[in-house]
Computed example of a mutant assay.
Amino acid sequence: MTGGWWRRQSPWLYVLPALALLIVFTYVPVGNMIWYSFHTWDGLDVTMDPVGWANYVRVFTDEQYWRVFLVSGYYVVASFAQIAVALYFATVLSFSVRFRNLFKGILFFPYLLNGVAVGFVFLYLFQPGGTLDTVLTAFGLGGHTELWLGDPDLANFSLAGTSMWRFTGLSFVLFLGAIQSIPGEIYEAAEIDGANRWHQFRHIIVPGIRRIISLSFILAISGSLAVFEIPFIMTGGANGTRTFVVQAYETAFQFRQIGLASAMAVVLLTMVLVVTWIQRRILPDDEVSLS
């Protein structure tokens, strides 16, 4: 009986370390964050003053805080374009083309770079007289140079483009791995039936990688809501580029309003969970047959 009990409990012994780390470094901080959100606290005092739902009311009623949600729209649009570009190149490079491995490396390389390094590189690219202006001038397009980060009408487009350039490689690798997992016999049968590349993409590739496409949309939308590195490094949130996470960071560490910043973080977490739930309802994770 003792040996049978140990055999039944042994799987939990393997899970226990990972579960302990998950609880200590994820669920406990989230619980503390929710607790802080109902208080006013500067992060230094020993005591915290309860304020009920006041922090949440301020997040949704103070224009300074809810307006930054609109900036995420630029990144959402860029993330959809990123998925389209990644899916296109993953489809093309899944077939036999020249220099296929070279293009794979070129597309995936930006994702390997540190986000801070990417921010500084593109900061020099977009600055007045920087790389982009120099290239435009060299091609006789000097009249089209702009304040790419200084103009509020262009700054968010520049930052969203930078984010798209960086994360396209991740979506590309996910799509490419999923496409290559589709059995080659299906393509051979489709070619015998006269299907061209477009038909193979529409009736074989898209249904076959539906789960990965759904996952990519979830990652894209949640990532768009939580953008931080690119705008913080390149503009510091100036010129209308302050995102919700940058605003929360400044609220917590610059203005020492930990309770309000925690409420903003809880709102962001709730939004991501709701978007993920809606996504899963629209695109359920069921078995999809190739048609």
Rank of each mutant, 00 (worst) to 15 (best):
W66K: 01
Q257K: 13
W35N: 09
V68K: 10
V275C: 06
F69R: 05
V267F: 07
I186R: 12
L260W: 12
G223L: 12
R67Q: 14
I192E: 08
F69N: 07
A138I: 00
W66E: 04
L141A: 07
A117I: 15
I212S: 12
T2N: 11
Y27D: 03
N101L: 08
A238L: 10
T145N: 06
W53Y: 12
F228N: 11
T168W: 02
W148P: 01
F157T: 03
G31H: 06
V275T: 07
A248G: 10
L260N: 09
F172D: 11
A54P: 06
S158Y: 07
T91L: 11
I192P: 09
I258P: 01
Q9V: 13
F89D: 04
V274Q: 05
F69Y: 12
T145V: 05
N55A: 02
S79G: 08
V15D: 04
G31W: 12
G184K: 10
L154V: 07
V135D: 00
Y56W: 11
A189C: 07
A248W: 03
S96M: 03
V15I: 15
G223P: 12
I205E: 15
W148F: 02
F255Y: 15
F99W: 09
S158Q: 08
G259L: 07
Y187N: 08
S96Q: 13
G169Y: 03
V71G: 02
F89G: 04
F103R: 06
I258S: 01
F175L: 11
I186Q: 15
R242V: 07
I230H: 02
W277G: 06
R8E: 10
S222Y: 00
Q127T: 04
L87A: 12
G177N: 12
G223S: 13
G52P: 14
L176V: 02
I186N: 09
Q9M: 13
V121E: 02
Y74D: 05
I278N: 00
L170Q: 07
P50S: 13
Q82I: 03
F80K: 01
F108K: 03
I186W: 12
G130H: 01
S216F: 01
F103I: 05
L215Y: 08
F25D: 08
D45L: 06
V59R: 01
L21E: 05
E146A: 11
S216G: 02
S181Y: 11
G4T: 13
F253G: 11
Y249R: 02
W6M: 14
G194L: 01
A160S: 08
A155E: 05
F255W: 12
G150P: 03
L147G: 08
H39Y: 11
A138V: 00
T145M: 00
D49E: 14
F167E: 12
R166E: 14
D151T: 01
G31T: 08
A248D: 04
T47N: 07
S171W: 01
F95Y: 13
A86F: 05
